[in-house]
Amino acid sequence: MKIAFTTKGTDWDAEIDPRFGRTEYLLLYDDETKTLQSIDNREINQKQHGAGPQTAQKITELDVQLLITGNGPGGNAAMVLEKAGVRILTGYANLSAKDAYQRFLSEK
């Protein structure tokens, strides 16, 4: 399964970015191949409109099945993610990606 975290950095120690659409990075973890990858999303700040659906589209293109984030996506972005069948977990702000993942495992 491919998991996406909204983060402020590029590795496991990066803090979860509470924002969805304007998150600085997307951290991707594949729990089958145990590989970590980061996607730079900072160009989104050039866009004045529609950041949520844009980031959501990016996530669907990356074939992600689970999203771990902070405040959660807005209505438009949620529609995109829902259409692509991405499961959304919110309320992980202020944790590091590592701790967020551990919490997810413990609550699974």
Binding site: G50, P53, Q54, N76, K83, A84
Partner: peptide, 16 residues
Amino acid sequence: NALVKVQQEIMVFPQL
């Protein structure tokens, strides 16, 4: 950014 492609579909966001 009122249009988004999701898999084999184009979604239109009227509010945007």
